[in-house]
Amino acid sequence: METVIELKTEEQIKEAYPVMKQLRTHLTEEAYTDLVKDAREKDRYQLYAMKEEGEIKAVIGFKPMITLYYGHFVWVCDLVTDGSSRSSGYGEKLLDFVHQWTEKNEYTCVALSSGLNRSAAHRFYEEKMAYDKVSYVFKKDFS
């Protein structure tokens, strides 16, 4: 049976690391855990997992935000399905969960960005989930 659960404890957050690492390959487990804790405390970040038979199949992280462009909306920061479970509907179910959370909490839309090289993800968002491509995201590093 599939279940969506919020990952709140350090143990739960660490349990999701092997799946999240498939998306955020640059993060060590310690850096990932520290960033999740920091984002939860300071930025209202929420982390959920889709579990089936006790095993994490997919993970989604999101946060409610306010900008002049979107107004009150939810930003999906992270969405990844375990490589061995892709195309099984887990990502769609987690994104549907966020859509329901968004409406229940009276936010107006859900937005996300996806790396330029992730064409399969783009097809998923546009064709399966009916998202519109509305902008490019630009980034400048200061490190």
Rank of each mutant, 00 (worst) to 15 (best):
E2W: 02
K8F: 08
I13Q: 03
K14P: 00
E15S: 06
A16C: 12
P18H: 09
V19L: 01
M20C: 12
M20G: 00
K21M: 03
K21V: 00
Q22R: 02
L23V: 03
L23W: 05
L23I: 03
T25S: 13
T28H: 11
T28V: 13
E30Q: 14
A31E: 15
Y32L: 10
Y32I: 02
Y32F: 14
T33R: 09
D34T: 06
D34Q: 14
L35Y: 04
L35V: 03
V36L: 04
K37P: 00
A39N: 15
R40T: 11
R40F: 05
E41F: 00
E41K: 09
Q46Y: 08
Q46W: 04
L47A: 04
Y48Q: 09
Y48A: 07
A49Y: 06
K51R: 14
K51F: 07
E52G: 04
E53W: 01
I56H: 03
I56W: 03
K57H: 08
A58Q: 05
A58Y: 05
V59A: 06
I60P: 02
F62D: 03
P64Y: 14
M65G: 02
M65Y: 08
I66K: 10
I66R: 10
T67L: 04
L68R: 11
H72G: 01
V74S: 03
W75Q: 06
V76W: 03
L79K: 07
T81I: 07
D82M: 01
G83S: 06
S84D: 13
S85M: 08
S88I: 01
G89M: 02
G89C: 02
G89R: 01
E92G: 05
L95V: 09
D96K: 05
Q100G: 00
W101P: 00
T102Q: 09
T102N: 07
E103L: 08
N105E: 01
E106T: 02
Y107P: 02
T108K: 12
L112Q: 13
L112T: 12
S113D: 13
R118N: 14
R118S: 09
A121C: 13
E126A: 14
E126W: 03
E126Q: 15
E127A: 15
E127Q: 15
K128L: 12
K128C: 10
S135I: 10
K140A: 13
D141L: 06
